[in-house]
Nucleic acid binder design. Structure first.
Lengths: 333, 333
DNA sequence: ACCTTTCGAGAAAGCGGTTTCTCGTGGCAC
DNA sequence: GTGCCACGAGAAACCGCTTTCTCGAAAGGT
């Protein structure tokens, strides 16, 4: 096969321009103060040899890679994709690139993956809902600078962006209650995940306020398949409404119920969470709690940029989901 | 803020173990052949100091970063997200990470972005449908090893994975024809994109076979918004069927037509392309040409792995889309 | 005309590893 | 007892770039 092409180095440019590598470096970085003719010669040589500095060598010397890591549970989830897309675009404007990784194959490796990938770059945006609090706190110093996503209540000292899942699902439940539903099911997410925990708490406070509500929890998951598989469980639970862990589960659930001959929303109302772009186009459209994922990505970069610049990052913020009432919910028969 | 923590270096481990850095390096990489007690001492020292080699320094010395780039027109497009997700998972199994970038903000910079990001890693998976052929061929040597996506017909010497858009859209058109449609619209993609060109060719060969078909082309785009905006144009074109550039456009179009009081598929049939996960859950579900995106990501990694190992990559392949007949198409009124 | 600054640019020391080269030691054969 | 070889591990060069340190020369002051 083709012999791997060797890139031209700073030494070659220096030789060609008849100067030292130090001078080439200075010219390339705009720190040159000497005669214009010299700078011009260097630029010409660089141009002719099609030279551009090795980011690797530069990174080693400078101690900075202009790269940030983005670690999430599952890259296949549209919610994370939206964050990634916004994060990448924002970072690119500052000349930074994003290195990605997901931990879907082995949730227990979240920490190992994070620390490994972190060493390859300057900072990390970490979404690790299943990492135990103790692990996170223990590793925090090695991960800095970092921005956390969705770890409300953590004692880790880092800027954090989160979604108020508790309030969000509470509102969804209230909506169902107002429609007249009294028997509901929660189609749960991974029991080890923090975001699932907050949804359960939100529902707990809801049921505390409404003793006349009967709420059952059924096994769900995080994807469309999981939602579809949960359809049978929801039906046999004998409820008139189901709150799904997220939109994917809701979409799968609606589809699964349809296959079982259960009409949504006529027989059972269904809610999602996230408001992924397709929730509104589903048949029926999904009533959900809307989360500003792009905004999350943008803000993550803002925090990140401040951190790598050694400045004070903005405050941690908790986004309030907005209720999106659509076609998948209606009064019970 | 917190003083940036300095990582322990190989020299410190060496000092602690009472050996030279060379020995530590050998032990860490399993190339050590000396006495076991020495190796044990090194391992202990590394453990105590919580040492792990700097990937950056390692990369410089070894000339390899164990990172590959993935460049696409738009990370927000679910089709690319599916490829990325599969690519990242496959690469991770071999200890590689993926660096991402999109060129959505400035399509003309595709080449600049690709060459810049390429220098940060060992190889690149490039999906650059709008890059002029001459530019691509000119830069090919600098980009190698690379795997191309969707550049059928290019003379660039690199493994390529592509979708047979030409045949795919031809089949979709035939499907509409069989249903009885004779006046159709093509809701186009970006005119500079190669994949749009192939769709046009496919349609050209279709109309050549069916002189009784009238086909008009209307401006479209790549996203849901573009599809929605195209609804008015489709309606005023007076057609009974519309072939959208992709599923996103189709979803937007269906939605837009609905808002205009045009029923799909009763008044107008609509087809998409890609079969993104949500096409089947749309209301109505979208008739489309199914593209195996995850497979594309997996195969991209296979080629990549072969290339970086200096082996012969597998052959270039062209995936044939599979027709998915769903609810958005029906005989004309 | 002499001494002190200032200035331009090269030499060299990192950055943190890997690897080739080298050398001292101990074991074995004769 | 001497010579040779194998072996274990350190010294040093290198990967490609940045930056401090250094120094010679030119400029400026008296």
């Amino acid at each position: 096969m083709a012999t791997r092409r060797r890139r031209t180095t700073i030494a070659e440019v220096a030789a060609r321009a008849g100067v030292s590598p130090a001078t080439v470096s200075r010219v390339m970085n705009g720190r040159f103060v000497g005669e214009d003719t010299v700078a011009e010669r260097v630029r010409a040589a660089a141009e002719e040899l099609d030279y551009s500095p090795s980011p690797l060598a530069r990174g080693l010397a400078l101690g900075t890679t202009r790269t940030v890591a983005f670690v999430v549970p599952d890259l296949a989830n549209p919610a994370f994709q939206d964050i990634l897309s916004a994060l990448s675009k924002s970072a690119a404007r500052s000349g930074y690139r994003v290195l990605v990784a997901d931990s879907v194959e082995s949730p227990s490796d979240e920490l190992a993956i994070a620390t490994e990938i972190r060493r390859r770059c300057d900072a990390i945006v970490l979404c690790a809902p299943r990492m135990p609090e103790s692990e996170l706190v223990g590793a925090i110093e090695d991960l800095k600078p970092l921005v956390l996503i969705n770890r409300p209540g953590t004692s880790a000292d880092a800027p954090m962006l989160s979604i108020d899942y508790l309030t969000g699902i509470h509102h969804l439940a209230e909506h169902l209650y107002a429609l007249g539903h009294r028997r509901m099911a929660y189609v749960a997410g991974p029991s080890t995940s923090a975001s699932d925990r907050y949804r359960r708490r939100g529902l707990a406070s809801f049921t505390a306020e409404h003793p006349d509500v009967e709420l059952v929890t059924v096994t769900g998951g995080v994807g469309i398949d999981d939602g579809q598989a949960a359809a049978a469980r929801v039906r046999s639970a004998g409820v008139t409404a189901a709150l799904a862990f997220n939109d994917l589960v809701a979409i799968g659930l609606v589809h699964g119920l349809d296959e079982l001959g259960v009409a949504v929303p006529d027989d059972v109302s269904v809610t999602g969470f996230d408001d992924i772009p397709f929730a509104r186009y589903n048949s029926p459209s999904i009533t959900t709690a809307s989360v500003p994922h792009e905004e999350l990505g943008v803000q993550a970069w803002d925090r990140m940029a401040a951190l790598v610049a050694g400045k004070e990052p903005g405050h941690s913020v908790q986004f309030q989901p907005r209720l999106e009432l659509r076609g998948s919910t209606a009064p019970p028969r």
